[in-house]
């Protein structure tokens, strides 16, 4: 019975998915797939696995994936409107698009290594560049090192297939990021952690090594964590963040629930596992750590 059940659901899921585009780019396999029943469109790097991004075809401005909503909690860590923001990793372009919609006066820059990803976001995901949304086809780390600008917020969401390239995980990189933040600037990072693995432990410790304060927000529907770190030395407690989230929500009338995300506030000390290794340019076995269980109790 179970067998029949699973085989029919398999057939159904395959017939409802339509392949719109596929290509082997310089960096990855890219496919754009549309679920014709759910009316959702995804961009993937593997044949069938986690999507890198996606949209609702009938409401392309909505943030479909949970992590794309979670990262906007960074707004509650800033006591003013963000002006200059940087996104490292474009995906389907949902986050910069959303930012531009609610902060049309802000300047959004995106560093995306793969030019084909930019074309895909434009063609299939309603992503548009304009004088306030600019894409740089460059390695994120090099873009940050070369940038002369300082940012209010830096969003880190660069994935190669299902892992973060090692040179975007290290203390040296995070110091470079920190040096490009304004005094009260915020960095927010999407960390996929299917279970509490060694990579997660090391990422927590690496962020804590570089930033005075690190906060975590856990996904409810997905295995994503969002790390928020501030350049400033003042710690923000839960009440402050919830209050600020409510205020920003009221002001901006987002279609996401910022106060709900704020209620998942956790200070990073809750997740700190002192024995975990801090990642550096010299030592960062990110590919292995993803598959190793956490040593934390």
């Amino acid at each position: 019975m179970a067998f029949v059940f699973s085989s029919t659901s398999l057939v159904r899921s395959e017939t409802s998915e339509k392949l719109l585009f596929e290509k082997n780019s310089l960096y990855q396999y890219i496919s754009v797939v549309e679920d014709t029943v759910k009316k959702e469109r995804y961009v993937r790097n593997q044949k069938r696995d986690y999507a890198q991004g996606g949209i609702l075809v009938n409401a392309p401005d909505k943030l479909l994936f949970e992590f794309t909503q979670l990262v906007f909690i960074s707004l509650a860590f800033l006591d003013r409107e963000p002006k200059d923001v940087l996104f490292v990793g474009l995906g389907a372009g949902a986050m910069p698009k959303y930012f531009n919609k609610y902060y049309p006066d802000g300047m959004a820059e995106i560093a995306e290594i793969d030019p084909d990803m930019v074309s895909v976001a434009r063609k299939y995901f309603f992503f548009k560049e304009n004088e306030r949304v600019k894409v740089h086809a460059e390695d994120g780390r090099i873009f940050i090192k070369r940038s002369k600008k300082k940012y209010d917020m830096i969003f880190l969401d660069a994935y190669q297939n299902d892992y973060i390239p090692f040179h975007l995980t290290t203390t040296e990189f995070l110091r470079e990021v920190k040096s490009k933040l304004k005094e009260d600037g915020v960095v927010v990072s999407n960390i996929t952690s299917p279970f509490r693995n060694k990579l997660f432990d090391s990422m927590v410790m690496t962020y804590r090594e570089v930033f005075p304060h690190v906060y975590l927000f856990k996904g409810k529907k997905s295995a994503n964590f969002v790390f928020v770190a501030t350049a400033g030395s003042r710690k923000k407690d839960r009440d402050t963040i919830v209050a600020r989230a409510e205020k920003v929500q009221e002001l901006k009338k987002f279609d996401i629930d910022l106060p709900d995300i704020a209620s998942r506030y956790a200070y990073s000390s809750e997740y700190a596992y002192e024995a975990a290794k801090v990642l550096t340019d010299d030592f960062a076995p990110v590919n292995l750590y993803r598959f190793q269980k956490s040593g934390a109790p």
């Binding site: 960096y27 390239p165 040179h167």
Partner: peptide, 12 residues
């Protein structure tokens, strides 16, 4: 490749 990545990235 690891030596070059911090300054030159991991581009093709």
């Amino acid at each position: 490749s690891r030596v070059l990545a911090p300054n030159f990235g991991s581009s093709v």
